[in-house]
Computed example of a mutant assay.
Amino acid sequence: MFQFNVNDISKYRTQLMGIATLLVIFGHSVGNGVVMPRWMESLCGLASVGVDIFLLVSGLGLWYSLKSIDSQVNLWGGKVLVYKKI
Rank of each mutant, 00 (worst) to 15 (best):
7 N>T: 07
48 S>V: 15
1 M>P: 02
48 S>E: 14
10 S>G: 03
69 I>N: 09
49 V>Y: 14
1 M>W: 02
40 M>D: 00
30 V>T: 04
35 V>H: 00
8 D>Y: 11
74 N>C: 06
24 V>G: 10
69 I>V: 15
27 G>W: 09
26 F>Q: 06
25 I>Q: 11
6 V>E: 10
72 Q>K: 04
39 W>S: 00
35 V>P: 00
69 I>K: 10
4 F>S: 03
83 Y>Q: 07
25 I>T: 10
5 N>R: 09
43 L>I: 03
68 S>D: 12
54 F>R: 13
69 I>M: 11
31 G>Q: 09
80 V>M: 06
42 S>E: 06
51 V>S: 15
41 E>G: 01
5 N>T: 07
75 L>S: 05
1 M>F: 02
2 F>Y: 00
80 V>H: 01
54 F>Q: 14
75 L>H: 08
47 A>V: 03
22 L>V: 12
6 V>M: 11
8 D>E: 15
75 L>R: 08
38 R>T: 05
24 V>D: 14
45 G>D: 09
79 K>I: 08
84 K>T: 15
17 M>H: 07
53 I>L: 12
49 V>E: 15
83 Y>F: 08
76 W>L: 13
59 G>E: 13
61 G>R: 13
52 D>I: 14
57 V>M: 08
55 L>W: 04
79 K>P: 00
32 N>V: 04
34 V>D: 02
80 V>Y: 04
30 V>G: 01
1 M>N: 02
8 D>P: 02
55 L>N: 12
77 G>D: 15
20 A>M: 10
24 V>C: 15
66 L>W: 13
36 M>F: 03
58 S>M: 11
60 L>N: 03
86 I>R: 11
2 F>N: 00
7 N>M: 05
68 S>F: 07
5 N>W: 01
34 V>K: 01
65 S>C: 10
68 S>H: 08
14 T>F: 00
14 T>W: 01
49 V>C: 14
75 L>I: 13
78 G>L: 06
25 I>D: 06
54 F>Y: 15
64 Y>M: 06
31 G>W: 09
4 F>T: 04
3 Q>Y: 02
51 V>K: 15
72 Q>D: 06
26 F>D: 06
30 V>Q: 06
55 L>S: 10
3 Q>D: 01
63 W>K: 04
79 K>V: 10
19 I>W: 09
49 V>I: 15
69 I>G: 07
27 G>M: 11
59 G>Y: 13
43 L>S: 03
81 L>M: 05
78 G>C: 10
7 N>K: 09
55 L>C: 09
30 V>A: 06
19 I>F: 10
76 W>K: 13
86 I>N: 11
52 D>P: 05
17 M>E: 12
74 N>F: 05
6 V>I: 13
48 S>M: 15
44 C>E: 08
68 S>E: 12
14 T>I: 05
54 F>A: 13
70 D>V: 11
86 I>G: 12
8 D>N: 11
34 V>T: 00
59 G>Q: 11
86 I>K: 09
36 M>A: 07
42 S>Y: 00
35 V>I: 01
31 G>I: 12
22 L>P: 02
27 G>V: 08
51 V>P: 12
35 V>T: 00
